[in-house]
Nucleic acid binder design. Structure first.
Lengths: 116, 116
DNA sequence: CAGTTACCTCACCATTTGGTTATCTAACCT
DNA sequence: AGGTTAGATAACCAAATGGTGAGGTAACTG
């Protein structure tokens, strides 16, 4: 079993049901019932998907009476973006121009992130 | 089995060996032998990883005498980035500012991409 | 208290994944 | 032709994944 965070995140995202759940959560918190509604799938199946997402840090779960509301935690998405950005110059013909935009932004932010 | 492109791409990226192979290919083409060198893994194992990457469209393979040089095809990374970008406002406190930068860039490029 | 709702865990099953060794082809080199 | 090298394929195996149904728990509702 793979243990590094990025692998866990990618594996969690490699499923249309889980991505649909995340997409739903961009519109706000939701209960497990609400999340499972769009899918022809049993409760335990959804429960497993949610556990995968939670383990990947992509969602967190609260507790409110008999409901366990799910909330989006998109922080791992930042790592995904950072990873993919390393390959931007291999697919973006306008890389140089965008790169300069990002560099400008980074300088303003004071974030240090050198390219390779 | 999941069939959609994004799932295939994410699944391909959910393995450290395959990501290391991609990282190696950013430094240029390489043969299967060269790619397998850093790993304590049999040839067929590497061959399988390469097939996964090829199936995901992340690499392509040429033919040069007895070598089958692998080349990076990072186009699917664009889809990964586009996917993750949808979640930027959930993790980037500077989202509004960067968003305006990207919108400016998109206008110049003439690309249409509405946010949700 | 009894019943219902929301959700989880358990046990199970089929398929996929990631690795192995053994074998095969194709191309190069004497 | 014979040997070596690069690489793919086949058969196999263990473990992980994605689903199921059965059953349990916690909280609300009558």
């Amino acid at each position: 079993m793979v243990t590094d965070q990025l692998s866990i995140t990618f594996a969690a995202l490699a499923d249309p049901t889980r991505r649909a759940i995340l997409a739903r959560l961009t519109r706000g918190e939701a209960t497990v019932k609400e999340l499972s509604a769009p899918f022809a799938m049993s409760g335990p199946a959804i429960s497993k998907h949610l556990r995968v997402l939670e383990h990947a840090g992509l969602i967190s779960r609260g507790r409110e009476a008999q409901w366990r509301p799910c909330r989006l935690e998109a922080e791992p998405m930042r790592e995904v973006t950072e990873f993919a950005e390393e390959y931007r110059r291999f697919w973006d013909e306008n890389y140089a121009r965008l790169d300069s935009y990002l560099k400008t932004l980074q300088q303003k932010d004071g974030t240090d992130d050198d390219d390779q």
